[in-house]
Design a protein around this nucleic acid. Structure first.
Lengths: 129, 129
DNA sequence: GTGCAACTTGAAGTCAACTTCAAGTCAACG
DNA sequence: CGTTGACTTGAAGTTGACTTCAAGTTGCAC
């Protein structure tokens, strides 16, 4: 046997994605085409890892296009451009964390003052131009 | 004069939104209809604060529907349901922060080991069912 | 071999969040 | 008074990320 080769339904079940999503990822180039058994996709378990990485990056706010570039960057030899790309992404992630933390403080503050708070929270920066 | 009443273009310029977006927010109920001068919207500067709060919440990952509910919740008297809603949002924000921080560690790790890292980062949790 | 669930494809549909378009209105300048 | 530019409306178009559909094929149990 060629070790455990999972059909798309099994991949879907384990990742919580729908088969259609997995096929979609393949179509847009996020997943390389996998070997077929009689036309049907057979996945190596490592696909689970890849899919999980995609979900995480996505929940962290990245578009499929960005995630794709992130994956592609790491395949380039010499590590020329990819380091800069990862650093750029790092900046983005940190900005996201900052914003989420500001939101957290806003929500906490609005819990504290108790009334019409969120709408008037002083943590929101109003443009002054 | 009825204090500074800003036309939609000015609101757009200051918030970085397009006028069409501001009208859209009104249409979907995120912004209450404002007074008109000869058919044209005239905004109180407080609208800038509201719009900024919207942008922040949006960047923190909330849909317009969710933001709307957040605003509506704070208007209910007694603070009955809105406290629970804000607390639920808090949980969501914290989950987002966690995920973004995992992304951050993944990216850092992939910078450290230098090669095909992001795709194989051990920080990604693979489902085991 | 029969049947059924799970798979295949391409095309079309959906949803959010807008943007663009067409056609028209209004204020102000010269 | 004419025209310019910012505004108005409703309707239709766009993008990303999928899902749904129709029509057909395959894998496996019985």
């Amino acid at each position: 046997m060629t070790t455990n080769a999972l059909p798309i339904g099994e991949i879907a079940r384990r990742t919580g994605l729908r088969p259609s999503a997995v096929r979609y990822y393949e179509r847009v180039g996020l997943l390389r085409p996998v070997p077929r058994a009689g036309g049907q996709r057979r996945y190596d378990p490592s696909a689970l890892h890849r899919l999980s990485a995609i979900r995480l990056a996505q929940r962290a706010g990245f578009s499929l296009e960005e995630i794709k570039r992130l994956f592609e960057a790491e395949r380039r030899p010499g590590g020329a451009g990819w380091r800069a790309l990862v650093e750029a992404k790092l900046d983005e992630v940190r900005a996201r964390i900052d914003e989420a933390q500001t939101m957290e403080r806003m929500l906490l503050e609005s819990l504290d003052c108790g009334c019409e708070a969120f709408d008037e929270c002083p943590l929101v920066e109003v443009p002054n131009g």
